[in-house]
Amino acid sequence: MRKLPAAAQEERRRQVIGLRESGLTYDAIAAQVGLTRTGVFDICRRFAEQGQAGLASGPRGPAPGTGRFLQVEQEAQVRALIRRHTPDELGLPFALWSRAAVRELIERHCGVRLAVRTMSTYLARWGFTAQKPLRRAYEQSPKAVRRWLRQDYPAIVAQARGEKGTIFWGDETGSRSDDVRGRSFAPRGRTPVVRPSHKRAGLGLISAVTNKGELRWMVLEGALKAPSLIRFLTRLIQDANGKVFLIWDNLPVHRARAVQDWLTEHPGQIEVFHLPSYSPELNPDEGLNADLKHAVTRKPPARSKPALKPAVISHMRRLAKSPGRIRSYFAHPSFRYAA
């Protein structure tokens, strides 16, 4: 009986009731339908108590929630700890939340030691999946990030709107001739090989983007220094339609005396704001940096600066003509607040 589908089981029960109503005994019915006398009696009793509802098949096994080693309150506490903390913050000898780390957390917090394989059941029940974690600097201040998102940036938007200015997001990046990214197909067991030059050549770039798709950029032959930064800022305010509200990080050159003096001389044309420290995930211009590095490394390896520079310039010119692509950076979950 138990091996039959639910519909077949219900039909067998209706058959038992029909035979019983025709006057057959429990023993005769049991012999005819292939059930025990007790089974036939139980079906008749359920029908007498519940009617047709007593013939329906119900869920099998223990009731949900029974047989667990953790109480509902304990599970809720463990879930909250995993969501809000990393293992090392709780004094556990793990970098990430693995099954072993969760087991040790449960043992320390709840006094219950479970098998590692049992953790898979609990994690699946909680809706937790194994994921590659995002990187956040240890020195970052979550409080400063919240203040930026809830107070500082909305105030900048309101000021820019009131003064009919444009908000630009600025950043610096670099490309290297030995940078290799992505994957390459090859026969199984034969790892592909690339041959970049170990005579490393590098090229710098400074850029600024808006959520309307505007892009300003300048290639740097070496490290970014105050004179180069001032030259870029001069171009930025010349090309802008109205006052520039520039948001960038806390790179030391941004606070150089020469740069500060230049900004003081142009208060009506440009005003700068600094992101919270160690928070590149708040800067949409990081999307351009990733785009550039991905595009350049897809091309044949550049083994010198003269070979690297045209590849960088070509891609940046293409981006300058693609405002939709620039706007797409702001669709990323980390940058959506600035869209």
Rank of each mutant, 00 (worst) to 15 (best):
T118G: 11
L308T: 10
I17H: 05
L215R: 03
R113A: 15
L105C: 02
A76N: 13
L246C: 09
V102D: 04
Q15P: 00
F128H: 14
V272P: 03
V272R: 12
L229W: 00
V253W: 00
R125S: 05
L123K: 11
H274I: 02
L236P: 07
L123I: 02
A311D: 13
P252L: 11
G67P: 03
G287F: 00
P192N: 10
P196Y: 06
D152N: 02
P59W: 15
I29N: 05
D42G: 02
S334V: 01
A258C: 04
L251H: 12
P93A: 12
F335N: 01
Y337P: 00
P133Q: 12
G34Q: 04
D239T: 13
K143Q: 11
P310K: 07
A155R: 12
M119D: 10
L246A: 10
R2F: 04
Q50R: 11
R84F: 15
S175G: 09
A302L: 08
F185Q: 07
D178F: 01
K321W: 00
L215C: 06
T210R: 03
T234M: 05
T25I: 04
K293H: 02
K199W: 06
F128T: 14
F47L: 01
V40Q: 05
P280E: 03
Y337S: 00
Q15L: 08
I156K: 01
F128I: 15
R20H: 14
L70G: 07
R14M: 01
A28T: 15
E21Y: 02
M316H: 00
R108G: 10
A155F: 13
R235D: 14
G170R: 07
K305M: 04
G170I: 07
D179N: 08
E11L: 10
E107G: 10
R325T: 15
Y278F: 14
W148E: 02
A137E: 04
A8V: 04
R336H: 14
K225G: 05
Q77K: 09
P280T: 11
E271Y: 06
I43R: 01
K225S: 05
G65C: 14
V102L: 08
A290H: 09
V272M: 09
L35G: 11
L275V: 06
E163C: 01
K243N: 01
H266G: 09
E271S: 10
L24E: 05
E286N: 09
I17E: 09
A331C: 07
A31E: 12
G189T: 05
I156C: 09
F330E: 03
T38M: 02
F128A: 15
A155Y: 13
E286T: 08
Q159W: 10
L292V: 15
R20W: 13
R235S: 14
V145P: 02
E172I: 10
